[in-house]
């Protein structure tokens, strides 16, 4: 379980807080999307969970303990982390990239090797074909598969993903979203991911937290957000696709 309580974070560069008294409770095994346009504070929120940033006020509890009471480096090593463009290490081959956290955790070489291979297989990359390639020798989709494999290789119970698939084009993005849903149903890790794509949120998340100007607008299932929007912002956000869809429906056959 991950719990955010009244979390606030400001930056020197802007007057209003990037994240403003934000609270959220994520259940174990649940997948939650932080949805909002750029600058709404969703990435900042995510980075505070694994302590890439620390909040100015408020509290974050992970596995029942406040993150500020946990060693920031060890905390990060217990959480899978996937970012946009994968952020692979260009001087290491795929095996070394995938095994990086296992190495940091001090696992013996044989375990590192075995778990890296398994992780690559999970993400549908043939270890013998791809293991010794360097990131520059992979396509964008393959790179992000390696990014996912790297985040899952050490069996984390929590995975954080920051705009994980938004740099990929449509077909590839669809495939890797399906892959993630498949892994998710097997591994049951708690996942929080950041996206600005409404359809990605609808497709992948159990519940969606809609953020606007640093504040939580509404947190709920897709059905709740569509049928019982609590704010104008949420109502507008979720009615727009329906209006666009009506453009299709208005087109009569034969014309």
């Amino acid at each position: 379980m991950i719990e955010l309580l009244e979390v606030t974070k400001s930056f020197d560069t802007q007057p209003q807080p990037a994240v403003d008294h934000f609270s959220l409770c994520v259940q174990s095994g649940e997948t939650v999307a932080l949805l909002g346009s750029s600058g709404c504070g969703k990435s900042t929120t995510l980075k505070m969970i694994n302590r890439l940033l620390d909040p100015d006020s408020g509290k974050i509890l992970i596995r029942g303990t406040a993150t500020t009471d946990q060693d920031p480096v060890l905390l990060k090593r217990s959480i899978g982390y996937v970012i946009q463009d994968a952020g692979l290490f260009p001087h290491w081959n795929v095996f070394k990239n995938v095994g990086a956290v296992l190495k940091l955790l001090g696992e013996p070489e044989s375990v590192v090797r075995k778990k890296s291979q398994q992780a690559l297989e999970m993400t549908q990359l043939d270890p013998t074909e791809f293991g010794t390639r360097f990131p520059e020798e992979l396509s964008g989709g393959q790179r992000q598969r390696v990014g996912v494999a790297r985040a899952l290789a050490f069996d984390p119970d929590i995975v954080l993903m920051d705009e994980p698939f938004s740099a990929l084009d449509g077909v590839v993005r669809d495939q890797i979203q399906d892959l993630f849903l498949d892994l998710k149903s097997r591994l049951k890790m708690t996942t929080i991911f950041v996206t600005h794509d409404l359809f990605e949120a609808l497709k992948m998340a159990d519940r969606i937290a809609v953020m606007h100007e640093g504040r939580l607008e509404q947190f709920g299932t897709a059905s709740e957000l569509i049928h019982q929007p609590e704010t104008e912002f949420v109502k507008d956000l979720f009615s727009k696709p329906a209006r666009q869809l009506s453009l299709f429906q208005d087109i009569q056959p034969g014309k």
């Binding site: 990060k76 982390y81 994968a86 990086a100």
Partner: peptide
């Protein structure tokens, strides 16, 4: 992105 990934992974 590489540096952020490294930090986020616990280097």
């Amino acid at each position: 992105t590489t540096l952020e990934a490294a930090r986020g992974m616990g280097f």
